[in-house]
Design a protein around this nucleic acid. Structure first.
Lengths: 332, 332
DNA sequence: CCCAGTAATGTAAGCGCTTACATCTTCATT
DNA sequence: AATGAAGATGTAAGCGCTTACATTACTGGG
């Protein structure tokens, strides 16, 4: 073996008395290698602790088996759960995860998407990176022309883009129905961002009202900061100065927390339903009833999809919608 | 240009009427290129949308500017915050983040550490992946022989391993002091895992007791499941059946949540101090006083360290300890 | 025992870049 | 205008792998 620091395929070939092609075949699990040869090569590999250089392999193959993840905010509980699930699933399929956090800026999303493509990843998964209403999704469409793109909880209908999502519109629609059935007529709706998911939920809220013959009161549909004290102050103020409400629907658990605090302080008891069913729902006092939008399942579906796509199977659905599920606790 | 799908450096060279070496120099920002030539080359690059192939570059350079992250659990709030901060900081320095989640298994930690090395990352950062008492850290030491290893909130003293940590022992020591000063003598200590950090805190708790002339009561030092209902049940039981306690210190905010719930239900009012100062502390009712162990700062320090290490600077300290800070809210 | 046919292995040409070294310009000195 | 030195550019040899194609080693049927 030469005195380079790490052995290369030539060293292995030499020591095993074969050619590099044979070593490569052993490495790639090709079947056209005699069993005795394979054993001999494997022995040398074990003995030297050789591992193939991924860059060289990447250069030859055009891929390093990496999947790029574009996530708005990993520190968000919901996304963190998604990343965690995805990592495990990807690794199981032999892919590494290249993680990019975009924040909310569309410019950054586009830029990072570009970086990911430059890295020649095998696929791109978007987690929470889609899409305010005003967004243009050209970067996604472009990316999809080169590599499969999977969107978790977002929807972009375009060839090469595959979406797994939870029917949050329906979930919110149902929430309104439940509250209506229990006699509520003036539901407060709190949201912080009009992402794709945010719009779905808002839409569900409004549609349900219409279908129930109520015009949604715009004064009860409030956009607020994603921040406990703000929401708390907001709700406290509403309790004192109106407009009056007799139930609260929040687009995110974190908002509900602020709501609950304000309600508790004022001694007001109205139902509250959160969204995401994160750990926060269990932390709240009283414990928060919340919609479970199935991160883990979404991610598992995404992983399955990905495998299908990379095997170029043609039976991969371009859209997959899961049902959400209301988890009842103490606030409704 | 040939009819390959992506242009390569030869295409650019040809169209710009220079050699590939010059293109490469332009790309790498070398200064030995005449301004007019650079302009011409850049123009062609823009025009064609050429981006250098990262595998080829990696092969030549021996690096793809990637940093491997080994994290026990990204879905944990504390780690998620760390990952988020690190990603931003790494990207700023031009590194991509290769994320591995190990879980608690030492076998997996070792295995994944190996994978990371095989990928020829430029550095490895451990987030929460160190170290139960019984762990052997040979994999870390081996890795450090090849590539800088940075440990966030862990300590392995070994050449090539750099640690940034928060003085959690001192923080817990101080907690005991504060409670002692307010007259508490029977403090309940709850923890879930004896990671490095876990051991530090426990140590601080015990040492403080000794220094204050109290023998820590082992019956008040309890290991529990990291799970709200368990803790709640545990504490509820203790309230009824003893042993008696007059304050609670928890090693993690999530444990404190269970504590607070049990206390509230039983109408018992004793101080509680959590640890991590995560969002959970703000969610709790009453809001939880908690020790802030400075994730963001730790990560920033790690990033700075990393830059120093990759520039082979010799002034990089091998250990950096930050002070924790108690954030007072309603439970103490 | 020969030969076609197949299985196993080897040869060598990429993949797209970096960079040491060679070559050619430029330009200030004399 | 001749002469270097310094600056700009080109040449070509890797980096370590994959793989099409060529070659050699086997196999059983005639």
């Amino acid at each position: 073996m030469s005195e380079r620091n790490t052995p290369n395929i030539y060293d292995i070939a030499e020591r095993a008395g074969v050619s590099i092609a044979t070593v490569s075949r052993v490495l790639s699990g090709s079947d056209k290698v005699r069993e005795t040869t394979r054993k001999r090569v494997m022995a040398v590999i074990e003995e030297t602790g050789y591992t193939p250089n991924p860059f060289a392999r990447g250069l030859g193959l055009g891929s390093m088996k990496m999947v790029g993840i574009l996530c708005t905010d990993v520190s968000d509980l919901y996304y963190a759960a998604a990343i965690s699930a995805l990592e495990r699933l990807l690794r199981r399929s032999g892919f590494d995860m290249l993680l990019y956090c975009t924040g909310d800026s569309l410019t950054d999303k586009k830029r990072y998407m570009g970086f990911l493509l430059e890295k020649h990843v095998d696929a791109i998964i978007l987690v929470g990176s889609a899409f305010k209403e005003q967004d243009d999704n050209t970067h996604i469409e472009n990316a999809a022309a080169n590599v499969p793109v999977i969107i978790i909880n977002g929807l972009v209908e375009c060839p090469g883009v595959y979406c797994v999502l939870c029917d949050e519109k329906q979930a919110m629609y149902d929430n309104v129905g439940y509250l209506y059935a229990s006699g509520r007529r003036r539901m407060l709706y709190l949201y912080d961002a009009l992402t794709f998911s945010g719009m779905q939920k808002l839409d569900g809220f409004k549609t349900a009202h219409c279908d129930l013959g109520m015009a949604p009161d715009e004064a009860l549909i409030i956009r607020c900061k994603r921040d406990i004290p703000s929401v708390r102050a907001l709700v406290a103020d509403m309790i004192c100065h109106g407009p009056a409400f007799d139930a609260v629907l929040a687009a995110e658990d974190i908002l509900s927390i602020g709501v609950c605090k304000a309600l508790a302080e004022a001694g007001v008891d109205v139902p509250v339903i959160g969204f995401n069913n994160s750990i926060l729902a269990q932390c709240a006092t009283p414990e928060l009833t919340s919609v479970d939008n199935r991160v883990a399942k979404l991610c598992a579906a995404a992983a399955t999809m990905l495998e299908g796509l990379l095997e170029k199977r043609s039976d991969v659905p371009s859209k997959l919608i899961l049902e959400a599920k209301l988890v009842r606790r103490s606030t409704f």
